[in-house]
Design a protein around this nucleic acid. Sequence first.
DNA 1: ATGACGGATCTAATCCGA
Length: 266
Amino acid sequence: MSFSVATWNINSVRLRRPIVERLLLEQAPDILCLQEIKCRDEEFPAGAFAALGYRHQAINGQKAYHGVAILSRFPLTVTGKETFCGIDEARHVSALADVKGRPVHIHNFYVPAGGDEPDPDTNPKFRHKLDFVAEMRRIRAERPDAPNLLLGDLNIAPLEHDVWSHRQLLDVVSHTPVETGSFEAMRQDAGWVDLMRRHAPEPAKLYTWWSYRAQDWQASNRGRRLDHVWSSPGFAERLAGIEILAEARGWEKPSDHVPVIARFDF
DNA sequence: ATGACGGATCTAATCCGA
């Protein structure tokens, strides 16, 4: 049996509902994790996605900022809407999916961006980001009842070949050594496997985000891998393929992030 | 190379993203 799951920072789900529908129609992932929906729960276009077969939805929204949601063809039981650093922002939702009788547990995350200045003593947003990542260590990969997945916009490009220029981005928030070191240590301590790199090891360049500010994102190709798909070690063995849908960066009224789609055989 | 962009909001100028 095959099963697919995708993640996409949509940068306003109401504005970009048409391209979410396009992804669902063209790629038909079984489950789609969205970040930055930027709306309250009751403003989420639930009916439009249900009409395409995604009747099961776990939404953790808030007004204007952040917000995450899981769309699923299979039944979902919400298992958590957790807060981190004692700050009440909608940056996490988790659910247990019933995939034809087989349970799969999913964490959907939107990690804080961290502001401009990579100094936790002068920039509270950067301090928040570092604290948030450290606290993610409590989300463990191993789970007694189901294979576990962690997906989302984690806002850190951890490896040298996750950015267009390692040297030029060492002082840029998302790729500073304090972030990348803490991020990889957290991932390994909690037991997660980086599925994108399992499928395409370095030195392959992998990007999931291209700035809106480039005149031609494709020509300059100054991307970063900010979006991630992690699994528990046992489930990593079931990975059949993983794709970065870079073409979506060129769709009408695009997000600055593109979808990542993982497929499993189990 | 921190921007030349693009969201949301008390629709006007401000905050935010990365």
